[in-house]
Amino acid sequence: MEFFPDLLLICVIGGVVSIDIAAGWQVMVSQPIIACPLVGLVLGHLELGVIMGSLLELPWLIVIPTGGRHSSEANLGAVTATALSIYLLADQASTENIIIIISILYSLFVSFLGNHLVDFMRRTNLRLMYAADIAASEANLGKITWLNTVGLIHAFFLGFILVGFGFGLGWLIVKPLARFIHPSFDSAFGLARYAMLGVGFGVVSTMFITSETRWYAALGFVLSAAALVGINVF
């Protein structure tokens, strides 16, 4: 693994994710289920990317981006956490469970920063809007196209800079913290991994399992359990 080429790749992925969150496409490459394995593939540890994607995908699905509302930039946090955990594991900073959990907790800080950067970006976009008004009065269609593209560029650089900064700062802060935690605590952090999955399923349960649908959920549980028992037996 070479640090600076990898850092550039991670930042580009961050930029692409930032665009896909809202500014363009929205084909869901920004979702952790895609973005984390992608980071894993690029950095040579697809398996860890898949683990991070499965842990980080579900919890933030309950946050719905309606109107002007936006949440913490959890998707950019997920990219940072995955890249950081792969590098920490390669550096043998600690055990896998400890690295994963600390990276996830650190990603919340990166997401929080991202939230404020998005507010700043939206204020900047207002200037694009006013410039577009002038362009419209002049019937300058090319300029309106360019102004819309500038919004896209803003989004790319927001992700590029946030992920790069987050990864660099994480390397300075999280690495010594990971080394500080004794490896014998690995099993406790392993439980936290299952708890994180539990949060995700708790979120989805809140969204779908109601008094009307609970028996369908129970049916799904029973069918799945029966299938698993059947597979084990035969």
Binding site: V204, Y216, A217, G220, V222
Partner: peptide, 14 residues
Amino acid sequence: KYLVSILCGGGIAI
């Protein structure tokens, strides 16, 4: 919603 509830229950078991 019914289908996703079944999937949710199944996912929990898995």
